[in-house]
């Protein structure tokens, strides 16, 4: 609870924030602080300067366009939960955000923080990977875009270089019937700590076959893991596809070397992947068949 002496600055714009980051080598971004402040309490962070972007309105917008929803990195979980745009276009974002921690944390924690922290128990890295989201990275040379898969590179690691800020996230709006499902296995109680998660996304194309299939597992690898063999198996099937076990069986679980810790053993995590994958696919397929999400 007793932080090291630290400097603090509140920039007035994203440009100023980037300039500050580049002027002070041990500077770090403070957004919602719902992970960072805990790190600082334990005195394990290397930051000596905090650049507080939590009040930058330009990073807190949820914008709707024909193709995408754009969410500013400093948008809080609670703002996502209550966003009409999200509710209409991609409700899984709100449903998943609602599972994070508690009301207090959701009121301050941000989607950008969730992504940049990239703890294997975090909710958004797998979800954004499964949604095919684009991460908008801002640095002194301007805006750059990368896919979520490129962004989440390892345990607590992202592709952000020093001096860069995650400015926003662009999430595609499917133009055809689709399904999104996020299925966590929480240990220690309901929505307490995600030991393993599987997220599934499917779309149904005009001829009635499944496409854009993405199945992503976390808790079993350093980064959100695309279960490509499952995706390939499901791709091109009809909307009535029901051989979930067959699809999941294509994935070579023995290739996984999930970590063992006090929350769950590696073996248990590995065993949970197919269970959650079946459940996630089932939920996503039900939505596709209904043609809408409830």
């Amino acid at each position: 609870m007793l932080l090291k002496e630290i400097s603090y600055v509140r920039p007035h714009s994203i440009d100023e924030a980037v300039a500050l980051l580049n002027s002070y080598p041990e500077a770090g971004i403070l957004a919602g602080g719902q992970s960072l402040i805990n790190v600082l309490k334990m005195r394990i962070g290397a930051y000596s300067t905090l650049v507080d972007i939590s009040a930058l309105e330009e990073l807190k917008q949820i914008r709707d366009s024909a193709e995408f929803i754009s969410i500013g990195a400093a948008t809080t979980y609670d703002d996502i939960i209550h966003s009409p745009v999200v509710m209409v276009s991609r409700p899984i974002l709100a449903e998943t955000a609602f599972r994070i921690a508690d009301q207090q944390v959701r009121n301050r924690g941000t989607i950008g923080g969730n992504c940049c922290y990239n703890d294997p128990t975090c909710h958004f890295p797998p979800l954004l990977t499964a949604m095919g989201a684009t991460m908008q990275v801002y640095g002194s040379d301007g805006m750059r875009e990368m896919s979520a898969e490129e962004f989440f590179v390892g345990y607590y690691q992202t592709a952000l270089a020093s001096g860069q800020i995650l400015a926003g996230i662009r999430i595609p709006k499917p133009k055809r019937p689709y399904g999104d499902a996020f299925v966590p296995l929480s240990v220690g109680g309901t929505d307490v700590l995600n030991a393993v998660t599987v997220t599934a996304h499917v779309e149904l194309d005009e001829p009635g076959t499944l496409t854009a299939v993405r199945v992503v597992a976390t808790g079993v690898a350093p980064q959100p893991l695309r279960m490509t063999s499952v995706e390939d198996f499901v791709h091109g099937q009809t909307g009535q596809f029901s051989d979930l076990a067959g699809a999941v069986a294509t994935f070579d679980m023995s290739s996984l070397e999930p970590p063992s810790d006090v929350h769950a053993s590696g073996l248990y995590r590995r065993r949970m992947v197919p269970v959650l994958a079946r459940r996630a696919l089932k939920m996503a397929l039900e939505q596709v068949r209904r043609g809408y999400r409830e």
Binding site: G189, T190, V192, V262
Partner: peptide
Amino acid sequence: GYKAVTAID
């Protein structure tokens, strides 16, 4: 680590 039970459970 010590997962003190919450109101949900």
